[in-house]
């Protein structure tokens, strides 16, 4: 693939004017991306628990049905928790969306090819699991529409991004601080 987007620019576009959006970031570069473009109390960054981002999003979405939840993660993290796509589809939460930044590789560990480089189609997996709102976005011009859809629809979006490693920005990694800050900002502490 040659026409891929820059991941940090994608995340900046998706988190523009985040308002009250509840954001869960999957471990690795997705966490760095979210922290770099929009560090805020209503972000919950995963620094471990690989494969858990989508399910953290589901628990949160079910607990807060009147708020929008957006999970931003990478292809490797999503692949480790593929079953979550089935579990979430079965629950049909209307307020949860997932955006997968797909660089077809494991960027944290040396750039080894992931399954999406080897023929696995995450959007098709989601469709097969029962997600009814699924899209692939390849052009920067589509990002404004994608931002709106991620905040209005139960959408599963796959966004191919380039493999180039962006500058490493490290958001807070004290999980107790992150959870306390998040709950206080949400008014449930």
């Amino acid at each position: 693939m040659t026409s891929e987007l820059d991941r940090r620019a994608v995340v900046a576009a998706l988190l523009k004017e985040p308002g009250e959006l509840l954001v869960v970031a999957g471990l690795g570069t997705a966490t760095y991306d979210v922290g770099a473009v929009a560090e805020r109390s209503l972000n919950f960054y995963l620094w471990g628990a690989m494969g858990g981002a989508a399910m953290v999003g589901l628990g949160l979405a079910l607990a807060q049905p009147d708020r929008r939840v957006l999970v931003i993660t990478g292809d490797g993290e999503m692949l480790m928790g593929l079953g979550a796509l089935a579990t979430i589809a079965a629950q049909r939460p209307q307020n949860l969306a997932i955006a997968v930044l797909d660089n077809a590789s494991y960027g944290e560990t040396g750039g080894q090819q992931s399954h999406t480089a080897l023929g696995v189609d995450l959007a098709a997996v989601a469709t097969g699991c029962g997600w009814t709102h699924v899209c692939r976005v390849r052009e920067a011009a589509e990002l404004d529409t994608l931002r709106r859809r991620l905040r209005e629809e139960p959408l599963f979006a796959v966004i191919p991004v380039s493999r180039g490693e962006p500058s490493r920005h490290l958001p807070p990694r004290d999980g107790a601080f992150l959870s306390s800050r998040f709950r206080a900002a949400l008014g449930v502490a």
Partner: peptide
Amino acid sequence: TGAWLGGA
């Protein structure tokens, strides 16, 4: 964990 983040 997500449920608790959301107060449930």
